[in-house]
Simulated assay, not measured.
Amino acid sequence: MKIKATLEKIPGGMMVVPLLLAATINTFAPDLLRIGNFTEALFVDGASTLIALFLLFTGAQINLKNVGVSLGKGATLLLTKWVVGAIVGLIAFMFAGDDGLWLGLAPIAIIAAMTNSNGGLYVALVGQYGDKTDRAAYSLLALNDGPFLTMVALAIFGAMGFVDGMFSIVSFISVLLPIVIGMVLGNLDEDMRDFFNQGSSVLIPFFAFALGMGINFESIIEGGLSGIIVGLLTVFVTGTAGYFVFKAMKWNPIAGVAEGSTAGNAVATPAAIAAASSAFAANVELATVQVAASVVTTAILLPIYLGFLVKRLEKKGIRVPDDYVIDK
């Protein structure tokens, strides 16, 4: 059987097929792989560990002379996603009805979903379609985990005051440290760099599967059409914005698209903000299910959209990521 060749024919196949397979299992037979020991540790609970190892391997491929490029890409992606998400959220607030909703969407759900991103999905996608500077950019993208940037947007809107304690510098360092360790090892010893490089691509389908085991298709049903719309906005608005910003910077535009998702931890953001300000309590349940639906929608749709854009570039004679590699 030509399993590898078949997966490679599917846009983002090494990532999206294991993820969808796991999501299907988690939806219809959630306890099938939750049997403890090594099976559960690898296929259910292994995402964080596998991603951390992937980041360490990625860090080893970074030449210190290019570290500024990685930080520049990370900062650009972070700012682009936040600005675009905040603007759409502001529009929703401006045109919201008496019920606090805009076209059935909770503004807080829009901001929470569009300013937050799925780091694991980003790493998986740029692992296949990006270079080492794209992968290392993830160290800065950890800043949009949780409700911190959503809170900043709301504070700017004057919707609520700034709330301390919503972001931990320790959490940020904990994401950055594996990359730094890998970078140190790779720059101290070229053989270590080559050794770690062999393992990077192997990890992608495994942590993609583990990520899928955290997805339940029922979230789309609960969130309804409105939640799917939030997901569509996240993929096509923030993802496309990242594409054109990266293209303007003459960086790999596909890496810019890879940030167009919503992370699972964003589901807790509406409740966290409602706890800080009762002004948002009325729509917190609706916002929560809409964000949950966006998580699932973006996890499925973003790899497909990204694969479509890759094919479009290939028709123009542009190879991704080869034609955009900074340190060839």
Rank of each mutant, 00 (worst) to 15 (best):
T297L: 08
V267G: 01
A293D: 08
G317R: 11
E222P: 10
S278Y: 09
M249H: 11
F236E: 06
V230D: 01
A210W: 06
T297I: 09
F280M: 07
V325E: 13
I304C: 08
T262M: 00
L203Y: 00
F206K: 11
V284H: 02
I215N: 03
T298K: 05
P253S: 09
P303N: 10
A272D: 11
G214P: 05
A292W: 01
L309M: 13
A274V: 01
I220Q: 01
A268K: 06
G214L: 12
L301I: 14
G223K: 03
A274C: 10
F308E: 14
D322Y: 14
G239H: 01
G317V: 07
S200Q: 15
A263N: 02
L313A: 13
L232S: 07
S200E: 12
F244H: 13
A255W: 04
A263L: 04
T240Y: 12
G260A: 09
A292R: 02
A255M: 10
M213Q: 06
F308D: 12
L302F: 10
I204C: 08
Q290W: 02
F308I: 14
V284P: 01
P303D: 06
A287E: 04
G223W: 04
E285I: 08
E218M: 13
T298I: 07
A272Q: 14
S261M: 07
P253G: 09
G307I: 03
L309P: 09
I254D: 04
K247C: 10
V325N: 13
Y305P: 05
V296P: 02
K247E: 14
G317I: 07
L313Q: 15
A255Q: 06
I215G: 01
E314N: 15
A255L: 09
I254N: 03
Y305D: 07
F244V: 10
G242Y: 08
S226Y: 15
D322F: 14
S226V: 13
V237E: 05
A255T: 09
G242E: 05
L232Y: 11
M213A: 03
N252R: 02
K316R: 14
A292E: 02
P321A: 04
A282E: 08
L203N: 01
I221N: 11
